[in-house]
């Protein structure tokens, strides 16, 4: 199974994961993490700890962040150390997380990441007004 970490500013990720579980029910392997109160090195260590927790499973990992250029993005990328097997996706939204839960069993990590980026973009659309 591909595990996922939703790492964001404040409680954005915690709430997104809570809502996913409210919609779908319990979801293994989906974790949220906040950057609140943590230094850059501590954020990196926290992500590295999450990555280490999954060693041996073999399913791979995805990290969702809220905005590229912030402390969450830097911590995630530095902790992954340029490992192309671990996708880091910016701009997390609810549609992406629902897609993750739906597709994660039948897709490899790289393909899943590409599908989720597409899904996230499609979810951002003008649905009213001009």
């Amino acid at each position: 199974m591909i595990r996922a970490l939703v790492m964001t500013h404040g409680d954005i990720g915690l709430e997104l994961v809570r809502v996913v579980k409210m919609i779908i029910g319990p979801v293994d392997g989906l974790t949220a993490m906040s950057n609140a109160g943590l230094s850059g090195p501590d954020l990196q260590a926290q992500v590295a700890g999450w990555l280490d927790d999954g060693d041996g499973d073999g399913g791979g990992e995805l990290i969702f962040i809220d905005d590229y250029g912030g402390s969450c993005a830097s911590a995630a990328l530095i902790a992954c150390g340029g490992d192309g097997c671990r996708a880091v996706i910016s701009g997390v939204n609810l549609a992406m997380l629902l897609g993750y839960v739906t597709w994660r069993e039948n897709t490899d990590n790289r393909e899943l990441a590409a599908k989720l980026v597409q899904k996230g973009r499609e979810a951002i659309t003008l649905v009213g007004g001009r």
């Binding site: 500013h9 230094s39 850059g40 954020l43 905005d67 250029g69 912030g70 402390s71 830097s74």
Partner: peptide, 12 residues
């Protein structure tokens, strides 16, 4: 700033 380059710096 122990987070170095991040939103408070690049945006704020």
């Amino acid at each position: 700033d122990d987070r170095l380059i991040h939103g408070q710096v690049t945006v704020g």
